[in-house]
Amino acid sequence: MAAINITGEDFNKTVRGEGITLVDFWASWCGPCMRFKPVFEKAAEANPDITFAKVDTEAEQGLASALGISSIPTLMVFRDDVLVYREAGALPASALNSLIEQVRGLDMAEVKAKIAAEETEEAK
């Protein structure tokens, strides 16, 4: 499955819910973004069970600002409605594939329990 372009209106419904979603924040004038594009597209084709989404930061400046995107490309990875990875910079194919396997291997019950414990601790 090819990567899909999403807007601010699509963002929440794309990243919420079950499953894995990778979101690439990019711009056409960004050299590293253009070098990362075929890596991201190839990973999308190789992993049809994962949603691969792209946000054009020029067209979606409000969304990029709201999410604190200050460097591009920035990759965000969500699993089961939890942000599990966020990093600026273009990844080589081997690193992206490794990241995907690590996200697949996450014990989400454990991740959510840790988040809940941290939130409880912060509330004290």
Rank of each mutant, 00 (worst) to 15 (best):
D24A: 02
I69L: 03
G31C: 05
A113D: 10
G31V: 11
A66L: 13
Q102I: 01
A109L: 01
A93F: 00
N12F: 03
T57D: 11
Q61C: 08
A44K: 15
E118G: 02
F25N: 02
E58I: 07
D49C: 08
R86Y: 00
T7C: 12
M1S: 08
F25V: 01
C33V: 12
A46F: 12
I100A: 07
K42T: 14
I4A: 08
I72N: 08
A93D: 11
G89A: 02
F11V: 02
R16A: 10
N5I: 01
L96I: 12
D80N: 15
F52I: 11
V111C: 05
L91V: 07
D81S: 15
K37G: 07
M108A: 09
L75F: 12
T14F: 09
S70N: 05
N12W: 03
G62Q: 14
C30T: 06
E60V: 04
E9W: 09
L106S: 00
G62S: 14
L96V: 04
S70G: 08
V82N: 00
M76A: 10
V39K: 14
R35P: 02
F25T: 01
A43N: 15
T74Y: 04
T51V: 10
L67R: 14
P38Q: 13
A2F: 03
R104P: 03
I115K: 06
D24R: 06
D24T: 07
F25Q: 00
M1W: 03
R86G: 06
A3N: 09
M76D: 13
A43P: 15
E60H: 11
S71F: 06
A113G: 04
S65K: 15
T74S: 12
G17K: 11
I20Y: 12
E45N: 15
E60I: 08
L75Q: 06
V84F: 04
T7S: 14
T51P: 00
A44P: 13
T21C: 12
I4F: 05
K112L: 07
F25W: 01
V82P: 00
V15A: 05
A44S: 15
R104Q: 01
A2I: 10
V55F: 06
T57I: 15
S94T: 09
V23F: 09
E60P: 04
